[in-house]
Each structure stands twice: as C-alpha cells, then as structure tokens.
Amino acid sequence: MTTTQVRVALVTGGTAGIGAATCETLATLGYRVAANFCGAEDRAAAFTRRTGIRSWRWSVADHEACTTGVAAVEAALGPIDILVNNAGITRDASLAKLSPENWQAVLDTNLTGCFNMARSVFQAMRVRKWGRIVNISSVNGEAGQFGQTNYAASKAGILGFTKALALEGAHAGVTVNAIAPGYTDTEMVRVIPADILPSIIAKIPVGRLAAPAEIARCVAFLVAEDAGFITGATIDVNGGQHMG
C-alpha cells in the first residue's frame, strides 16, 4: 500500500477456499482484515487460530444480519474500506429437477448477498470518498454450465450488478469490479465426482485447476490504492477456459 492509512477489508465467505486465501493475502499486505462466515463455527475458529484473522458469523442472504454484522466489524476494526463479496453456494440440478427452494437459496446467497453487503457499506464509502468493492462471479456465469441454471444466473447477475454500481461510485472514488474465476481447487469443486473432474480439467488450456491464492492476488490488485481507474471491469481468471 502507498498510503500510511491502514485500510479495513471485509471478506464474505472468508474462512475457506478463495475467501480464506483472500483474507490471508490482504493481511500479509498490511490490511486490517475481517472474515465473514455462515457455516461451521469450528472451521472458522481454526482459521482464526491459524491466521490471527477474526471472523464474524452471519448469513449474507439476510439483509438485517448484514447491517448488524457490518456494524460489529466496524466497532472492532474501524470503517470498512474494502468489501470482497465472495460468499456463494451451489444447489446443482437440471431445470426439470431443480426445486423452487434451491433456485431461491442460490439467488439469495450469491446475488442478493452482494446487494445486502454492498448496501451496508457503500454509502459510507462514498462519504469518505474512497472504497473498493470486488464481487466474485464465475466462469459459469459467463459461459453457462449444464445443471447450474440457478448458479449461472446468480453469477451472471453479479456482473450486471457490478457494472451498474460502478457507475454510482465512480465520482466518489469508490470502485466496483468483478472477478470471474475458473474452476479452482476448493471444497466446492472437490465435490464434483471423480469421474467427471478430469473432463472439466481437459477443457482448461493450462491443464489444471486454479489455486485459491491465484484468485486472491487478483483481488489484491483491484483493491490497491493505485487501482482507482479500474471500475466496472470483469477480470477472467480461468486458465484460458473461456475468453469472452
């Protein structure tokens, strides 16, 4: 960082996978980092013991919980300068087998979660004339994927949300960007059946999954002090799998 001010970063879904790697990368770079989580408390506690990064539990799908959670983080660490909307879930099924409940659950967490969290920090960022929001989309939000109409719709929606919000923040020094990772070595990808994963990797020109740290480095680039002219952009980090 090129400023003497220590920026506060909040990463949703921050205790595992891409979120955990992002928290650790930003902490190493000198940011004051908070991790949000909604899942297992024992995993979050282990993450905090290992990294020293504090974690707070709430569901990003719950607007009131987001407001309360943000207030708790800011009371502990100071105003949030950087928001990384990383929290996401899958409930995969072909459309004929996809229940309305699983459609809505994915939209509520992946897309509405971005709205809930951004709404909790955006106005204060505008008042302070500085802010960074990074929304984690997906290659499948750009290219689609069989059995993921809910997930692909939510991740595609993030891209439109990013572009529109970028226009609202630009004059106030608040940038809003998206990253669309390809298949990454996380728990979400590890549940893919072993007989299917090789066929997915075969379609990735670099011939492997991404490491979570590779996505985290892209986040670090976008939230930097000198990244203020990059807004409304989507950065693809997919090993060449999709070139939109």
Rank of each mutant, 00 (worst) to 15 (best):
A93F: 01
I82A: 06
T68L: 09
C66R: 00
A76R: 04
E74R: 00
H63M: 14
T67C: 13
W103G: 02
V73T: 00
A105R: 12
H63K: 15
L77K: 04
R91P: 04
A72T: 11
I80D: 09
N110K: 05
D108C: 10
L107P: 01
N116D: 02
R119N: 08
L111W: 15
W103A: 04
A93D: 06
T112E: 12
G78T: 03
Q104R: 10
A75Y: 03
I89F: 12
P79I: 13
A105Q: 05
E74H: 05
T68F: 04
E74C: 08
A76Y: 05
A105E: 09
D81Q: 06
P100W: 04
L83F: 06
T68G: 09
D81M: 11
T67V: 14
R119H: 07
N85W: 06
D108A: 14
S59H: 15
A93P: 03
V60P: 14
L111C: 11
K97H: 06
I89H: 10
N102W: 06
L95K: 08
M117Q: 04
A93S: 04
P100A: 00
P79L: 13
L111Q: 14
L83M: 12
A72H: 11
R119E: 11
N116R: 03
A76F: 11
W103P: 06
I80T: 13
I82T: 09
L98C: 07
D92Y: 10
S94C: 06
V106E: 06
W103N: 07
H63A: 15
R119T: 09
T68P: 02
G69I: 05
A72F: 07
D92I: 15
V73R: 00
P100G: 01
N85D: 07
T112W: 08
C114Y: 12
K97N: 09
S94N: 13
L111T: 13
K97L: 09
T68A: 15
P79C: 15
